[in-house]
Design a protein around this nucleic acid. Structure first.
Lengths: 359, 359
DNA sequence: TGATAGCCCGCACTCGTTTGCAGTCCATGC
DNA sequence: GCATGGACTGCAAACGAGTGCGGGCTATCA
């Protein structure tokens, strides 16, 4: 008696039916398991007669046969699975990216393992090892550190991967990012057109590639518009969050009170600015304009609603996934990188500079 | 020549080393693969001599051996994996729960497959099937519908599961939720103590269990405090989001302008209220108080910062994971459910009712 | 009628690990 | 001296699917 068939024990009660296996459908179709395998697999179906294929497929359907991905993975060393390495799912930046990734993976029969690294390199290495032992066919890496301790090693071992929200120099790995440079340029142009001449920048940490790209773009844009190019108007935040944004803003205000606008490295840093405005009774946008970056969900619900650079997070994820699938299918293709367009979303945190100087 | 050993092709170039397998470490330790397996597995280690165990473990370490989870799963029909079914990762409610779940799973050597259902039953069924074919050992289900088309069937098939943020009647399945009833009671008490007598409720959809629990609790609390118990002061939102919250709020205002406070089914619905206040020039909290539910991230950054009920999302996830692991380890334990305590977070969206009537 | 080719299909092995069973070896007891 | 038992360890068969190889069958042609 086959244990994985519904069957009666001597006592008479019904034993739990195990899911049907390939042999079950083969048996039901009066055929060998090997033939059933070929019939079920579209790419080998031409090896069996049309008639038997039909019979096997029908048997599979009536039994509700689902191939066992584990067994298949063991044999083929493929898993239809990719790893998704992010710092922290709790950061509102990532969920839309993840959805974008999953939407395209799912359409191709793939799924994603998500791991959080909390930006701890040790943890990152461990999680990636665990992903690899699970036979992931590729990696989508969204951890933003600019140094790449073992990415290089992974790449040399032939691990397929694509980077999102991050570029790595001297490494032949495809990446998809938002067009940070034009985003910053749009922000600066907007402020310049409103009449601001002295604009500050709260930069993201320079240990992240977006941090350096954005602050480099800021200096460029300032010069392009012939605005006041004062290096002391840029301060680097320790992390991409409100608290460090607030600290940086305080530092800036304490040493210079003549700027009338600030472009924040991202929305969270802009939120930090809001906190400092409240502390010091600075009114935004009357006395000080702020523009953020990312257009996080609900950022339009703040008072005032934040002017910011809109980033197509879902698309970033989707494109990254598509690119990874391409790499998996044709391993020899040259890595190409993608820069996704951003848009300026003007809301109420920016206005012309007031006549009276800011406090 | 073993193909999975580093080796030289006739042409002389080094072929890529495949990860070492159990037989490799067995060979290196001068022992049979079966013995190596027993030596490496703590629970069977007592079957081999201390000396061989030492040798095998050492060999495994020097080769950098990692057991292949796929092969192990195939053999043992276990995967050290659980499925995590949520409606939409993009809803800020879920990321903290997910992190809570992953934190405890990871400590036990488990990992989670996350699937999004978008609250589509068809999709939910498909995703759950796919999870099951991947041999997940249990399910954590966070989709909030009150009807359970096939949960029952799953349960009867012996699928281990725990529900979060949701209770299901007449179903012996453990669940962990926030203490919605006391949360609502706290909110009502707070408003009553501020002096409000006529309080409205924007309920979540009654197709979700939290929707019905919270609105039942609202009626209870209103009566307990001897406040105006007018059924027309409760309106049900179509979904748990801003847009439907706003619609409900408009409806309410159009038919009654004498209430001075509203308890919203959750923070998003409260956000919808804010939108309507802006539309109609109602000032909060001067003319109208609002309290939300969940204490979403950044909800304290609104103007005015929202008074809301704080829910321990991370803990909910952690407890759910722990409970599921318990079910997996001792299948016979009686299902128990957990109600996690909530706290009222008072911010600036609530104040005593003003003397002049609200518009 | 016999040789040949071509189409289908089954056999048997493989992926890496776990595990029931049986065998070896040594020490102990009578 | 031989049986008994205990402590280890090897053998081989799984788990479920995929695949190279060869064999059987039919059709075609000389």
């Amino acid at each position: 008696m086959r244990p994985n068939q519904p069957s009666l024990t001597p006592a008479g009660e019904v034993k739990r039916a195990q899911p049907p296996t390939l042999r079950d459908v083969a048996e039901a179709a009066g055929v060998h398991a090997a033939t059933a395998s070929r019939a079920l697999n579209p790419s080998t179906r031409r090896l069996v007669s049309a008639e038997t294929a039909r019979r096997v497929i029908k048997a599979a359907k009536t039994l509700g046969y689902q191939p066992n991905p584990i067994a298949r993975s063991l044999k083929t060393a493929k898993s239809s699975t990719v790893g998704l390495v992010i710092p922290d799912l709790t950061n509102p930046l990532f969920p839309p990216i993840v959805r974008g990734i999953e939407d395209v993976l799912e359409a191709e029969g793939f799924s994603a393992w998500i791991v959080n690294t909390d930006n701890d390199p040790e943890r990152e290495r461990a999680r990636i090892d665990s992903l690899r032992s699970r036979q992931v066919e590729g990696l989508i890496i969204a951890t933003a550190r600019v140094d790449h301790p073992f990415l290089e090693a992974l790449h040399e071992q032939g691990v397929k991967m694509v980077l999102v929200n991050r570029r790595v120099e001297n490494l032949e790995v495809p990446c998809v990012t938002a067009d940070d440079a034009t985003g910053i340029a749009l922000a600066v142009r907007h402020l310049a057109e409103l009449g601001h001449r002295r604009i500050a920048h709260l930069a993201g940490p320079h240990s992240t590639s977006t941090g350096v790209v954005r602050s480099r773009a800021f200096r460029h844009a300032i010069r392009d518009h012939g605005l006041e190019d004062d290096p002391s108007l840029t301060v680097e935040c320790a992390h991409w969050n409100e608290a460090d944004g607030a600290t940086a803003m305080r530092e800036l205000l304490d040493r210079d009170n003549r700027f009338t606008a600030v472009v924040a490295g991202n929305d969270l840093i802009a939120l930090g600015c809001y906190d400092v405005f409240a502390e010091r009774g600075i009114s935004c946008p009357d006395e000080m304009s702020v523009v953020g970056f990312n257009d996080m969900p609900f950022i339009d619900k703040l008072r005032p609603p934040l002017t910011t650079v809109g980033v197509p997070h879902h698309d970033i994820g989707a494109e990254a996934a598509r690119m990874l699938l391409d790499c998996i299918e044709e391993p020899d293709r040259r890595p190409r990188s993608l820069l996704l367009p951003v848009t300026l979303v003007v809301r109420d945190s920016t206005a012309p500079p007031s006549a009276r100087p800011s406090s």
